[in-house]
Design a protein around this nucleic acid. Sequence first.
RNA 1: CGGGGUGUGGCGCAGCCUGGUAGCGCACCUGCUUUGGGAGCAGGGGGCCGGAGGUUCAAAUCCUCUCACCCCGACCA
Length: 567
Amino acid sequence: MRLAKCLVPTLREEPADAEALSHRLMLRAGLVRQLAAGVYVYLPIGYRLLERINVIIRQEMNAIGGQEILMPVLHPAEIWKQSGRWEGIPEMFKLRDRWGRDMVLGMTHEEVVAWLAAREIRSYRDLPQIWYQIQTKERDEARPRSGILRTREFLMKDSYTLDPDVAALDRSYAAHEAAYRRIFERCGLRFHVAQSDPGMMGGLGAHEFLAPCAAGEDEIVLCAGCGYAANVEIARGVPAAPPSPSGAARGDVATPGARTIAEVSALLGIDPRLTIKSLLYVTGGGEPVLALVRGDQGLHERKLARALGEDVRPAHPDEVRQHLGAPPGSMGPVGASVRILADEHLREGVYVVGANREGYHTLGVTPDRDFPCRFVDLHAVVAGEACVQCGRPLAVEKVIEIGNIFKLGTKYATALGAMYLDESGTERPIVMGSYGIGPARIAAAAIEQNADADGIVWPASIAPFPVHIVVVSLRDAAQVAAAEEVYAACQRAGLDVLLDDRDERPGVKFKDADLLGMPVRVTVGNALARDGVVEIKERRAPRKEHRVPLDAAVSTIRSLDVLAGAS
RNA sequence: CGGGGUGUGGCGCAGCCUGGUAGCGCACCUGCUUUGGGAGCAGGGGGCCGGAGGUUCAAAUCCUCUCACCCCGACCA
């Protein structure tokens, strides 16, 4: 590809609206442009990047027996009504056709797959199946952000497995996990595999593939000792034990003006770990629920929602007064007439809690003795807590979710009538799994993990072009001819190559080459006339330079380690 | 949905408080010079100042409403 004729609009200045590193660089390098919030156009280099990633995904999906299909973006509402997901998913785009029929823009394809399976799968002899597609998804996200990291329309590789039973599902699931590991390794990413919350997908189990980087929206809890890895939404951790309590007898103490844990513990001169934080929530059904965590810790709302089996929201201050008779700063569990859930690490100990009396707290309180409660895991794990498996300290990292895998079970098959006959002639529901990868998130994670101050540094496996040729001066016919020769030779050798044949000053071309981040740069400049050589450099190691004669350029490029493994 | 912020040539911004001919840098076009890390000089084109309404002799500027976008939080298959 020749830069002089192509749409590669690089920017000198930082785009004002971009915050995340990958977002800034994708805009500056001319990979994407934003059409609306969370809606992007992929320009030639950006689209090529996605296709490079998709090639790897296809190879690995095909290798485990995946069959590529293409399902529609536009769905009839019926199948979503049958699965029970027509209501209650605010991200779903809904529309009507000209006859007034309800339609859906597909955000995922379990329903369509189950519909298809219901028609085409008859017998256990037809199983197992792996169907996948690389296709556009539409989700009306509450808050698109961070460039292409969270968008309302995006490309997704989604695959679905159909199996006769759970044991077979486990095999399909394991095959996907292995394929996903290979895909992300080949894309040059550092990543973790973590247990995750199946959420509204429902089902028997789920894992996420998470790439650590600064722009990450999620957090993962990691144990270096035993390899424990889990999304903070479900991660367990053992907080450090509190110091010995003062042994104070139970009783109220005046704490005027002290409303936060920090204020209360400072006023009383005690460690915050000897206090209990009381948080009132309201369930979807309108029931108030008091959630308790240790004073130094935070509540993870997803854990609370999971324990209750329904969504919750924080109560308003007037609801706190109404149910507990005290303002938020003085509420507590003792004598409260609402359901109480306490973090499991509050089983032991004697604590200070709000007294449900404005300006007072109660000393010497022990959960389950001084008030009734149910113990569940509620607190958000923080770095330094002990691993539940091996006791070593846990770390917490920011991550981008680049893939996820779900064991769905028979929920969708049952709802949409996807049944098969087993060996004994008994009709059974097909057992499904679903598996997603976001190619654009792989791209963003690769940028986040590899960029330097000058721009992108692509892993060769997904680089839009492995080779980038810079002609220093277009006025020098010998340089132009030599560059054309290397360009043609690379193409003959099967190397995708970008030729900067723009009539620009050298500095502009070098800056853009750094920004675009192709793994190998060939500079055709003054060294050609002076020494009869071109210069070959790796983007990741700019100080190492190979000066070789023209006819050795391609063989030198091919010998570079950086291109090993790249197609 | 709650909180914060921003809308002025393609990009990045100033001007607004204190109303009075719309500016700067980059990019773009022409010419000359220049050519190994974002060139110099000269000339030039391009903006109903996000939109609507209002106040005023006069609105980018003041007021009201509205739309869009960004960030934090909530949410997230």
